[in-house]
Amino acid sequence: MSAYIRTENLYKSFYNKKEKNDVLKGIDLNINKGEIFGIVGFSGAGKSTLVRCINRLEEPDSGKVWIGDTEITALNKKQLAERRKKIGMVFQQFNLFDSMTVFQNIAYPLKLVKTPKKEIESKVDKLLKLVGLSDKKYAYPGSLSGGQKQRVGIARALANDPDVLLSDEATSALDPQSTLSILDLLEQVNKELGVTIIMITHELEAAKRICSKVAVLENGVITESGKTSDIFLDPQSSTGKIFLEVYKEFRQNETFTGGGGI
């Protein structure tokens, strides 16, 4: 079975004045349809740039990106805008409109594609039920907790029935309890809607909890990839080994202090 999402020899650099910063250095990725696939690494490893190259919010310097039978990197502007409707994205800082209600935030992408009003109402109500926020329909983001804001962000990302959901550090700004609830929600979305999820994270526990496979990104290069359980039982990369040591130390501290959760 060929992979549903594929990147081939993906390169991306940024320029600061005259200095060139190579962020992605030949990334090859294969992600199957319906997977929750984790891309893990420390800050500056290139994780967010990689995920933004997949939907071309960032233009790769070279290489190819495929989703299904469509080569994303070959699409013109109009074709890309059409394909992006089916690629949802969840951000670390929620990116909600403070002046809009929860309903209006979720309805926003549907209005952009001129969805009929009755259909919007029905769709938003279903999404609110899915993310457990039916009672917050007319609330404003300022009155919501971080976890609730992220639930709104997930509902909005699902508004156009995407086949792919890109989660860029979606739990990094949340407390441990909210993190768990958002991870459970992403898992539920994956199972119930069959959405393929790419989860960018530097949190080992998050990746271990819901990702079936992970790739470790280190200085713009994938140093290892495979089943999550295999990689974190016996990491081969220096990043994987550091992740595991930090995780073990954290769990020990949790035990000593009587803490729980992540």
Rank of each mutant, 00 (worst) to 15 (best):
V189P: 07
L244G: 10
E35V: 08
D184T: 02
K111V: 07
A139E: 12
G147T: 02
K114S: 07
S62Q: 12
V164I: 13
E71R: 11
I198L: 13
I36L: 03
L244D: 09
A170F: 08
K64Y: 11
S143V: 14
N253K: 15
R6Q: 03
K12N: 03
K86Q: 12
A45R: 07
V90Y: 09
L174Q: 04
G153E: 06
I106Q: 06
N219H: 13
T49K: 03
V65K: 09
Q188D: 11
K77W: 09
L128S: 10
C53M: 00
E254Y: 14
K149C: 08
S122D: 11
A81T: 10
K20M: 01
G63I: 00
D168W: 13
K149D: 07
Q148K: 12
K77H: 13
D61V: 09
E119M: 01
L29R: 00
E19M: 05
V124D: 02
D230A: 10
R52Q: 11
V221D: 04
T101I: 05
A81Y: 14
V131D: 09
S99L: 04
K33N: 09
Q252T: 13
G260C: 06
K47V: 06
N9Y: 04
G38T: 00
K129T: 13
E218Y: 15
A139S: 15
C211K: 14
E119S: 02
Y138L: 10
L96R: 09
V195R: 10
Q236I: 07
I27D: 00
L144H: 13
S13D: 02
E192N: 12
K33S: 11
I5R: 06
A215S: 03
L110K: 13
D168Y: 14
V221K: 09
I31N: 00
S172I: 01
L130I: 11
R6A: 04
Y108S: 09
A206M: 08
K208E: 12
K213L: 06
L165G: 10
P176H: 02
T228V: 08
I67T: 00
